[in-house]
Design a protein around this nucleic acid. Structure first.
Lengths: 198, 198, 198, 198
DNA sequence: GATGAATGAGCTTTCATTCAT
DNA sequence: GATGAATGAAAGCTCATTCAT
């Protein structure tokens, strides 16, 4: 994560992410970030305009990273089902592997602290558009129902997976390969025209 | 909302909710709450122990209210499908009708600012347990797949609906009665043993 | 001085004046003002919007006070000479009696830290307009030269007196009643049509 | 101005003067001086010990420059009146031509930020001493009153001219050659033993 | 000699909380 | 019970100065 940043920026972003998840935004003071990251406040302000800028950059960086993970191997000419499964599986795996990034996006995607412009930029560069298109292909190929807008389907499936991941991070349930397979199957079934054998 | 509180408490809780959604927790100062609610800071501290207590009470109050709405008419001996549809529909409607409460819970359910004890209390008193049981009934009745834990199913369905509501509140899509019907149908299809006609 | 302010405001204004004269604006920190005035920083901000507001209020308050002193007993129908002498004498005396106020105005009347609006307001409410009028009367009565604009004369005379006061405050010279008489005589002579006996 | 300094020093002093007049001392940071002067902070500290040193050097440089201008052509054996008129006229002209230097001296001659030693050095090297002497000559020659100390007279006259220049820089009045002539005439009249024809 | 990233003390200001009225 | 002035610790941020390159 944050590979495209320099050493100081990376230290600040990583520290900030840890602190925000651990202690809440308002308890994450600049001096605490400075102390924990080993970067002086002065230097932090050399690389970031403000605390708000750090948080927004954090948001942008995580969405970008997650998007790259999810879309890794997406643009092939394999069958729809393969591509869809791969994307959702990668989403689950990156969420579990980088739970703090996942939590941060979940908590702050609605927050007014993240500027609309950053949200839009992140959305545009994310996996949402490509997946919308794939779902449209599935509808056109009469693989998926045509009653629902493809974007609604994507939101639904994203939501299902996100909430199962949340349950796992909360300790309510455990995720293994078999469950991942079944979750994606359920997503497929929820919008498939003909129920296929698992 | 907040009907079980007195006038001062209600004013404080409602004002705080508006401000947090509009301006972020850290920008919602006690003096701003005092000014906007028309209650002096002294009085606020007479009814609440601290700022943290207000936010936690807000969380508890909203989860309680939402739970009551979702479970209104739930405990009948009507067929599983009817009861399940009713609950999810009510969830969607209360989320759309009280979007600030919805957003608040979404943003703060993961936040360390909400005490674990409040989260647990809210969870126990919410709609989650009853719905888990209903899904178990559906599995036992061989209406739903038995590969998945009922709680996983509930999380999945809750997630799908939540994310469609989020899309609607973001202006990405619009929700009408027909869409609500189809969303719940999709949920059903995702876990049903035999796909039924819509 | 600062009689129209409450106790806290007066303590802050007086302390700030002392500190600015003694240590320079940039070395006069809010925490120092707080410590020396015995008012907490929080309270200071209850009564003043910002540090800049304190300095501007200080400016306004001093100009107002000085103006009142100079114009005390000015609006009579005594002869021009009497009224003019009285005003300039009072100017000298208030400058010597409140040297910090005098120095502050001298240093900050040109400073961009004092808002143009405050400068204008202070100017309008000060002694300048009334003295301009008196000088015009003297010109009309053929007591003063008509080659010079009355406002130019007032500026000249104000400048002479100010710089003698500055010299006195610097320890370069000493001011006594006789000197005051002679200074004002010199002012008179500088613009009088017919030189009178001293 | 600042001809006796090297290129870097001159850039720094000129930039600092502009910034202090435009924005106040406390808003004139070293990094701003560096940016606007095109000299890196490192280099600035190579040529000046500290920020305070820059400001003090600025003071010294301006007073020196102004002194040289005022005393240009002063040490002749022309009549007192000619020499006095020439000096005061040059003072007015240099003040109007280099208004920022003029304002800076006006604002900071009283400031504790300028070290006493620099003030003294500047005073000693300035036009004040020579003019004091000229006024003493005038008194000895029974051209000027002997009631007043020559230094008091110089202060008075300096003050009159300074305040008319201030009025001009403030936009309150306009200075032309005729006015300059009349101002100096008024100065002369204020202390002359026998009023002469203009 | 020149650079500008790095430092951290110290700045102005805010804010949760208290308490005399 | 209600008020809001008072508190002072702590926040975000700046800036004179240093020093490795």
């Amino acid at each position: 994560m944050f590979v495209s940043y320099n050493k100081v920026q990376r230290a600040v972003l990583e520290t900030t992410l840890h602190l925000i998840i651990e202690k809440e935004l308002q308890a994450t003071s600049m001096s605490l970030i400075a102390k924990k990251s080993g970067v002086s406040t002065g230097s932090i302000y050399h690389y970031f305009d403000s605390k708000e800028a750090i948080i927004n950059e954090l948001y942008r960086g995580i969405v970008k990273f997650n998007g790259e993970q999810v879309l890794d191997g997406f643009f092939t000419d394999e069958p729809i089902r393969i591509r869809l499964e791969r994307a959702w599986e990668k989403l689950i795996r990156v969420s579990l592997e980088y739970p703090q990034g996942f939590q941060f996006i979940e908590q702050y995607s609605f927050s007014p602290y993240i500027r609309a412009e950053i949200k839009q930029m992140s959305y545009d560069a994310g996996w949402c558009g490509p997946l919308d298109k794939l779902y449209q292909e599935a509808i056109d190929a009469k693989v998926f129902k045509d009653h629902l807008d493809p974007h609604v389907m994507v939101q639904m499936h994203y939501g299902s997976l996100v909430y199962v991941v949340k349950g796992a991070l909360n300790g309510q349930l455990e995720i293994n390969d078999e469950l991942i397979r079944q979750l994606i199957q359920s997503c497929w079934d929820s919008v498939a025209l003909n129920k296929e054998a698992t």
